[in-house]
Amino acid sequence: MIDRFIRSLVALLLLAGVVHIVAILLVPFNVPFNAYAQLIADSPSARLTLLNRTSLALPDLDPSFVTAVCPVTPETGPQLITGMLPDRLWFVSLIGPNGDVVTALRSDAAENGKLSALAGTPADVDTYLSAHKLDAPLPVPLSLMGDRGLVEIKIFAPNEGDRLAATAAIEAMTCLSAMAPPPAK
């Protein structure tokens, strides 16, 4: 009787250990409330969306930065992000659906604050760059690991004046399908 009980207890603990390990290992692939995956699905395509600093969309946003996002999905295709960024610390990141930052540029990567970056799958980026005119400046490639992600632009804006300037800069930027014709002037 005691022998059976001990065997059952050992089996129970072994099973608990296996379930524990499997559950921990699966968490990164099965987070049901992943904010980034939700944001990629919810963000309007082909435009930059400013996030409120108390945004419920993304917890843990640094409130001292003005943040905007633009989704890259199979539906949107590769996205060309262009514009002028202010003379402040800024980051342009490509983030995967699980929140991993795939690539990131910082303010010292752009000449005179002028940004031109292309975000998409490696195949899309290669196709775009190989078809690009040789005499035109190439955009900085930002390659996804999977087929979807989020371009995040963050500009350091510690006070209200900086926030206004950063917001205006982002509003003047474009995030457009690299396959689409340029907007009419």
């Binding site: 089996a11 129970l12 099973l15 608990a16 296996v18 379930v19 524990h20 499997v22 559950a23 968490v27």
Partner: peptide, 9 residues
């Protein structure tokens, strides 16, 4: 065993 494993995780 399953409940114990999930609860501990």
């Amino acid at each position: 065993g399953s409940l114990l494993g999930l609860a501990s995780a």
